[in-house]
């Protein structure tokens, strides 16, 4: 358990709902139930679980329905987006298609945008750096990048991304040339943004699979560069 400055509340990381299955970090169920009674339930946690239990009892929702969604959600991982970026780097025709018809191309690639939101793909170049934020909540292309990281949802990122994007990128290890134009994109609820980072030098002849290993999550939000070959 880690403390986030923006989190004043209580996290009962060890608690397992009765009859539920133990899950590993990626949300995949283990076959052994585990319960820790020494951690306790916070107010909002207990109320969320209470609402779920009540609606299952009333037959409004099925017993396994939420678990099925949890299973589906666990398949949303940043490597989905990385696959698309690596293909765009390798295949100029796909790159054009992804930029010009992003939603169709994402769906053709096997991903269904959450809430049927539209998808916009933005490309970073030496001239332009796009950096995505959602100042109002946490809009994020979860189908392509997995759940948003805590920092993306934090008050500090939501406030600072629009006023000092270069300082924020610098914290993430990216120092931009003054001449590179920064475009901060404040997300709308109906659209989700995926950033194609610049392809690192020294990757000529790399396969899509090799390239995908360089496409880190933060580079697809636009706060970082893609990973340089030979670093990790």
């Amino acid at each position: 358990m880690s403390e986030d400055k923006d989190r004043g509340g209580f996290f009962d990381t060890g608690w397992r709902p009765s009859g539920d299955v133990h899950r590993d970090e990626d949300g995949r169920p283990h076959d052994h139930p585990g319960v820790r009674e020494d951690v306790g339930l916070g107010v909002r946690a207990s109320r969320a679980l209470a609402m779920h239990e009540l609606l299952v009892e009333k037959g409004v929702i099925g017993e396994g329905e939420v678990d099925e969604v949890i299973e589906a959600v666990s398949k949303r991982v940043p490597s989905n987006g990385a696959t698309l970026v690596a293909k765009a780097w390798s295949d100029p025709e796909f790159r054009t298609k992804l930029l010009e018809h992003p939603k169709e191309t994402v769906i053709e690639s096997g991903f269904v945008p959450e809430h049927n939101a539209d998808i916009i793909v933005l490309e970073n170049t030496p001239e332009v750096q796009h950096m995505v934020v959602c100042t109002l909540c946490s809009c994020y292309p979860t189908q392509l990048l997995g759940p948003p990281p805590d920092w993306y949802k934090s008050f500090s990122y939501r406030s600072r991304a629009v006023t000092e994007p270069r300082a924020v990128m610098s914290e993430f290890g990216l120092e931009l040339d003054e001449k590179t134009e920064v475009r901060v994109v404040d997300s709308n609820s109906e659209l989700r943004f995926l950033v194609i980072p610049r392809r690192p030098d020294g990757t000529d002849g790399w396969s899509e699979e090799q390239l995908a290993t360089l496409v880190n999550r933060n580079s697809m939000i636009g706060v970082s560069a893609a990973t340089e070959p030979g670093t990790d």
């Binding site: 358990m1 880690s2 986030d4 400055k5 923006d6 989190r7 996290f11 009962d12 990381t13 060890g14 608690w15 397992r16 709902p17 539920d20 899950r23 970090e25 949300g27 339930l41 946690a45 969320a48 679980l49 779920h52 939420v66 949890i70 959600v73 934020v133 100042t135 109002l136 990281p149 805590d150 920092w151 934090s154 008050f155 500090s156 990122y157 939501r158 406030s159 600072r160 991304a161 629009v162 006023t163 924020v168 914290e171 993430f172 404040d186």
Partner: peptide, 23 residues
């Protein structure tokens, strides 16, 4: 929250999700 004054750096540590949060 856009532009609210703050000197806080961006904490990049991830908390471990509790089961109730996934649920």
């Amino acid at each position: 929250r856009g532009g609210w004054p703050t000197d806080d750096s961006i904490d990049r540590e991830e908390h471990e999700w509790a089961d109730w949060e996934r649920q």
